[in-house]
Simulated scan of single mutants.
Amino acid sequence: MDGNPALDAQRDAIIGALGSLVEGIAATFGPVCEVVLHDYRHPEKSVVAVAGAVTGRSVGGAMSEIGLRVLARGDEAGDELNYLTRTRGGQLLKSSTMVLRDSTGAVFGALCVNVDVTAVQQAQAVLAGIGGGAATGAAEASGTTTFGNDIDSVVEAIVDAHQLRQSRTWVQLGRAQRLELFRSLDEHGVFAVRRAVEQVAARLGISRASAYNYLSQARAATGTPSDPGSASTGGDA
């Protein structure tokens, strides 16, 4: 964020106004609903208000990998509405992520709604079985999403998931595949948080210098402005 005092005051006012709505929205849908308000100026502790306990979030917790992806898109990010995802514990969630913008159009936060529809899906299967037919209309989740109050655990889960999709260990990857891994991690916003380069390097079993080098090359290949040093030592994004 640019540190403009007037804009920061405006963003604080928007966050404050929405904070009072969080409890009301969650109460409307009951215990299957969770509402989380994020301030992306502090990605490692972006949760500023939460109601409900679907994903176990708490105030002061980190953003999820969905939030990191939105953060990586910057001001080009848009609302993501009515999508399905699955937690690592197996819960099926119907979610919406609505970005917050200041008067300049800059994205600085998000209001997220998560509804646990696991029981609904199970009920549909039971009713279909009783009726003698197959369950219909059951949508598939886009993938497993990591929710956590600790940003380190979120980053580690993203790195592990990307390695699994490659079906190879780091030493088995060719140079092009290694660059693709870093490009994908960058697109998912992993390097927007402090110490991310060091953490990714440790997770992959490579040196910090190698991680910086791969990130720089990956950004150069896509024409992304490269400042890998700020990814691990910079302030709040």
Rank of each mutant, 00 (worst) to 15 (best):
A106Y: 05
S95F: 11
G67H: 03
Y83T: 07
K94V: 08
T97S: 14
G105D: 00
A72P: 03
A106N: 13
R69L: 12
V107S: 00
A72C: 03
T87R: 06
R101A: 00
L84N: 02
T104H: 10
L92D: 09
G89F: 09
N82E: 10
D75W: 03
Q91P: 11
N82K: 04
G90Q: 13
L71T: 04
L84D: 02
Q91S: 15
S95Y: 10
E65H: 08
A62P: 04
M63W: 08
G67L: 02
A72L: 02
L93M: 04
L93I: 07
G60A: 06
G60L: 09
A72T: 06
S96I: 03
L93G: 04
L81M: 11
A106R: 12
T87N: 05
D102C: 09
A62D: 03
L71Q: 04
A106E: 11
G89V: 08
L84Y: 08
T104R: 12
G105S: 00
G61I: 04
M63N: 09
E80Y: 13
E65W: 07
T104W: 05
D79P: 10
S103V: 08
D75S: 06
G105N: 00
S64D: 10
R69P: 05
S64T: 08
M63D: 10
A62E: 02
G90C: 12
S103P: 08
G74P: 01
T85P: 02
L92T: 12
L68R: 14
L84I: 01
D75Q: 04
L100S: 02
L92Q: 09
V99C: 01
R73M: 09
V59P: 08
R101Y: 00
R88T: 15
G67M: 04
S64Y: 05
S96Q: 03
E65L: 06
G74R: 00
Y83D: 06
T97F: 14
S96M: 03
L84C: 01
G90R: 13
T104I: 07
D102S: 10
D79R: 06
T85S: 12
D102N: 12
L68E: 11
G60S: 06
L93K: 03
S103N: 11
R88C: 09
M98A: 15
R73Q: 13
T85C: 15
Y83N: 07
G90Y: 14
A77P: 00
K94T: 07
E76N: 05
N82S: 08
V70R: 09
L93V: 05
L71V: 07
V107T: 01
A72G: 04
G78R: 03
E80L: 15
M63E: 12
A106K: 11
V107H: 01
S95N: 15
K94W: 15
R73I: 02
V99Y: 01
G67T: 02
